[in-house]
Design a protein around this nucleic acid. Structure first.
Lengths: 326, 326
DNA sequence: CTGAAAGCGCTTACAG
DNA sequence: CTGAAAGCGCTTACAG
């Protein structure tokens, strides 16, 4: 007996032969075409099932020119923010009848470009990019082959590519306003980011500080031990970190040097990932509407597939989630 | 002008026409067949490039019956142990000329079964399963369509399916022996797992304790606050947790109730994920040979594709990584 | 060294 | 309600 896995899979023709009909009829019956009698369909379904028939998506895709497959690209698998977005995209895609294949690039530009190419070669009908590391020219080239939507912001809008992201400036303002309302004045911003979202959060922080009359207190610091040490000792009472990961670093450092959070130092993050819930004390943070982002990303792709040609950039409102750290 | 993304992609026929040759020749030239003159190949490559030609993997797969695609299935995206294994598989696959598509099941049996089906329908040449949650009958059915390799153990070997995993019993023994050598006698095991690997680590712990003459000290506890409290207060001096995630929980709890680690309580994990390096104090843990696991998983799949029919189960030796926590 | 032809497994008008 | 035929974009013997 040959190895089980080399047994050739049954085709439409096998089912047709076993059911004593033509293969066109099998195809029609399987997809529930109205012009097939109930009894015939029934019989064909039973035969197909007995044979363990599964339609070849490869053949169908070749014929239809559509794969019903969406590609999702993320920088790396180890950032909960990105994987949580992808989960939302998958859910929305599934609801729309698409499957999602996932690719990541270990945060390397070259790898990411390669993965985009690979997904395109695989025949995806559209691409969701959840990474600011994909080079712009790669996005532009990709968009000539299939619609592309960016989740999260690029430095400047890329022609031909839709986007959906949250309003980082407003998110930063929510944080600053919350801290000010709690009586803080010496509020520092911790960031190591050169990415567009990081830059937006930083400028949102600065604008909100000025708006609160605290322009003189603006202080931006990198999440490094020496800088954090200085910060803890110079009278800073609150820290807004550019994301949950860096907020947790601040948290750990503060506790290490004997500061209490939030009594001595209030700490706020961004993204509302699982890190925020797991942190101790639990992290006050900014939540993006992940489900909506996923739904809108898929919807934008479908509109492109239906022929839309003008670019759409959607901006969603974030909201503050107050927990124990601030 | 039509939307960029709807511009039909060039085919072999377009390239042939533009180069003034037959499409067979283009196919041969593109894949570097020896029987095509250097000058002709050169010219064809240039034309293909100008047209932005990319071969259709869909058509190629349909014709060849092979996709050069491997599927990887993991329980969920939020477990660093699983995603780090997948990265190793991807690297090995790439080196062997395969691409990898990744699917996850949010730790739900039904979803996981669906993802396996989906990858198979996509036409993958083989499946790497990094999840003990995929129902056994799903694995068996899948193996009739394509070779399947389990990374990590199943409760009992599944006929027709290869596996590669580390020796959990030995890993547990390494931990116990290390703790005993450091003078510990009251060594508890923390676990919440009902999975095969968890069970193996637990029995490895028990066996090693008995072998060290500490059979009377065997103590197995769930990672829950009440149980951990009792443990911290009853003279236990060391804890071996079934994985890094639960070790970090123990760590946090011990520090919360004012115990010093490792002075008052030594803590050891398993898996050597990024959590272990990030923990404070950094976690002593057991490292599996992830790269080797990835390489062997891909190799086993290729052997099956080349016709091997008997089952192979590989067991790799883990090693202890001593850091600050024990 | 090069071309004409068949076929992978589907779907979809087109006839009947 | 059902069948014969063309074609999606490739690869691969087979001729020349």
């Amino acid at each position: 007996m040959p190895p089980a896995s080399s047994r050739p899979r049954p085709t439409l023709l096998d089912v047709a032969a076993a059911a004593g009909v033509s293969k066109s009829l099998v195809s029609l019956a399987l997809r529930g075409d109205a012009g097939v009698s109930e009894r015939t369909r029934e019989r064909i379904l039973v035969v197909a099932d007995q044979l363990g028939y599964r339609p070849s998506l490869t053949a169908r895709t070749l014929k239809q020119g559509r794969s019903m497959l969406l590609g999702a690209v993320i920088s790396s698998l180890d950032n909960p923010y990105h994987t949580e977005i992808v989960a939302a995209v998958e859910q929305a895609a599934e609801a729309a009848g698409f499957s999602v294949v996932l690719a990541h690039g270990s945060r390397e530009r070259g790898r990411l470009a390669g993965r985009v190419q690979q997904l395109l070669d695989l025949g995806v009908d559209g691409l969701v990019v959840v990474s600011s590391w994909v080079p712009e020219e790669v996005l532009v080239t990709a968009a000539r082959r299939a619609p592309v939507v960016m989740v999260g912001r690029t430095a400047t809008p890329v022609a031909g590519i839709d986007s959906v992201n949250n309003d980082d400036e407003q998110g930063a303002a929510l944080v600053v306003d919350h801290l000010v309302a709690s009586g803080h004045r010496r509020i520092a911003h911790v960031t190591s980011s050169t990415r567009p979202a990081g830059i937006a959060r930083r400028s949102g922080y600065e604008a909100a500080m000025r708006a609160a009359g605290l322009g003189a207190e603006v202080r931006v610091v990198r999440p490094e031990p020496a800088a954090l040490d200085a910060l803890v000792q110079d009278g800073t009472t609150a820290v807004f970190a550019r994301n949950d990961v860096e907020a947790v670093d601040v948290l750990d450092h503060a506790l290490d040097v004997g500061r209490r959070v939030p009594a001595d130092l209030a700490v706020v993050g961004y993204d509302d990932t699982m890190l925020a819930r797991r942190a101790r004390p639990a992290l006050t943070t900014v939540q993006q509407q992940r489900d909506v982002m996923g739904t809108r990303a898929v919807a934008l792709l479908r509109e492109r597939l239906d022929g839309r040609t003008d670019d759409v950039h959607e901006v969603l409102e974030p909201r503050l989630v107050v927990r124990a750290s601030a």
